[in-house]
């Protein structure tokens, strides 16, 4: 195959290869971490005891916990995948879907609720074409929620990548989103 098609394919391939190697590097780092815990000879209960710690580390590396990573951890610890997933799905903290490039968290505390965060959420959902708890199809935004962030005087409040916006109105949403590409 030649011409433009070939060039695009080559590019695609290089991209995949770099992604693959970076994932492999993360797996290697995770393995080294597991190694450092010195699990040899520990029984199932002993290996279970470090599971959460390892999952934390893995999420730190990958940003979320892909199924393949959960399977890898289960093989490393010789625990059933169902058990590993049982733990992952129990804690809110663990993410089983990748996040978008930017994370928008809405405060759902009482003050924000009363002062109209609901309308703001609706507006963001409409403009990003996604729902609370999910990631937009273009991978740009993930919508999440937070408990009260202690900025009730600024209610309603949202955060984008940790930056706080107060007294947000549905009309301001477009401008806020425009700051994040």
């Amino acid at each position: 195959m030649g011409g433009a098609g070939g060039a695009i394919e080559t590019m695609e391939l290089t991209r995949m290869q770099t992604e693959e190697t970076s994932d492999q590097a993360k797996i290697r780092e995770l393995d080294a971490f597991i190694q450092s815990l010195g699990l040899d000879g520990r029984d199932a209960a002993g290996r279970r005891a470090v599971l959460i710690q390892i999952l934390h580390r893995a999420q730190g590396l990958f940003g979320w916990l892909p199924e393949e990573v959960q399977k890898h951890i289960s093989a490393k610890l010789d625990l059933h995948v169902s058990e590993v997933y049982g733990v992952v799905s129990f804690y809110h903290f663990f993410k089983t879907k990748p996040s978008g490039r930017h994370v928008i968290d809405f405060c759902t505390g009482t003050a924000c609720f009363v002062r109209g965060i609901g309308k703001v959420i609706e507006q963001v959902e409409a403009q990003t074409g996604t729902k609370l708890g999910e990631t937009s199809g273009d991978g740009r935004f993930t919508l999440g929620s937070l408990r009260c962030v202690g900025a009730c005087s600024l209610a309603p409040v949202l955060q984008v990548d940790g930056k706080t916006y107060g007294r947000v109105t549905p009309e301001q949403v477009e401008a806020i989103l425009a700051e994040y590409k």
Binding site: H80, S82, Y85, G86, H92
Partner: peptide
């Protein structure tokens, strides 16, 4: 076999 576990919350 280990297929079943409590999943979700």
């Amino acid at each position: 076999v280990g297929v079943l576990s409590g999943v979700g919350r």
